[in-house]
Every structure is written in C-alpha cells, then in structure tokens.
Computed example of a mutant assay.
Amino acid sequence: MSTSAIYFLDVKGKVLLSRNYRGDVDMNLIDKFMPLVMEREEDGNLNPVIQTNDCTFAFIKHNNLYVVSTSRKNANVAMVFVFLHRVVQVLTEYFKELEEESIRDNFVILYELLDELCDFGYPQTTESKILQE
C-alpha cells in the first residue's frame, strides 16, 4: 500500500493532525489539497483520488473532516481507502465521535494509535480490540 503521510483536515483545509510515515513527501504539499478539491467541486469533477506532479492524494470525508493520505509512489489505492476507513472506524470506537473536538482533545492518543495502525506507510494492526489491549 505504502502511504507516505496521513492528515486530518477540517472543512476549510486546516491541518488538525498529521503523521509522516516515510519522509518522501513534503508535508507542506497538503496546502495544495483544498484548492484542488474546491476547483474540482466547482467543475463537478471531484474524485476521491487527486494526482499531481508531486504526489497522489487519496481522501475520505467523515463528519466535516477530511482524512487524507499522500503518496509519492504508485500506491494500491483500494488498500489506501480500506486503511483510511479502518482508521476512522478505530478512532470512532475510541472516541465515540470522530470530529474536530475529539482530535484536539486526544491528539497524544491519536499519535500513538496512528503509530500502531501503520508502520513506515504499511498497515499493521487495525483491529480496535487488539489495540485497546
């Protein structure tokens, strides 16, 4: 799968939390994400995968949050989406609601969970019961 980084953004595109797994993508590339989303929404051509010369953005939207994965390599996008949905599911089980406030209130636990869920861009343990142990 190989995701380089994962970001949690609010609806305006402000980064609430990010985790760099591989170090091969500039973390400031996320600043290009929201203008691309807005441009494609206006055109009626918004897809959950946006490719640029610098990287590929794969994203899901959940409770007014964008959960975005970036990759420089040719990643298996289906696996990226399964991983993003599993991240949302695990975090929802931990915090009851995954929203801006729960991210701000629990960022230390979030970083620990993101480290357990993914190692060097590859999914690891994504079962919440195992993670809770």
Rank of each mutant, 00 (worst) to 15 (best):
D31L: 12
R40L: 06
R40P: 01
L46P: 06
G44H: 04
H62L: 10
I60L: 14
N45F: 10
V37N: 02
P35K: 04
P35F: 00
I60Y: 02
P35C: 07
N64V: 03
F57M: 01
I60P: 00
N64H: 13
D54K: 04
E39D: 07
E39R: 07
D54P: 00
L36Y: 02
I60T: 14
M34W: 07
V37I: 13
N64W: 05
D31V: 04
V49N: 04
P35E: 08
G44E: 03
P35W: 02
K61C: 15
F59S: 07
N53W: 08
E42P: 00
F57G: 00
N53I: 06
N45A: 13
M34V: 07
F57W: 01
N64Q: 12
D54R: 03
E41Y: 08
N45L: 14
N45T: 11
T56N: 14
L46Q: 10
N53H: 15
M34N: 07
L46F: 11
P35H: 02
H62Q: 08
P35S: 08
A58N: 09
N63Y: 11
F59G: 10
T52D: 09
T52P: 09
E42M: 08
G44A: 04
V37T: 07
N64L: 13
V37F: 03
L65E: 07
A58C: 12
V49I: 10
N53L: 14
D54I: 01
E41Q: 15
N63Q: 12
D31C: 07
E41K: 15
P35G: 05
I60S: 09
T56P: 07
P48H: 12
R40C: 01
E39N: 02
I60R: 13
L36D: 02
R40A: 03
P48W: 02
M38L: 11
L46N: 12
Q51R: 15
M38K: 11
D54E: 15
N63G: 08
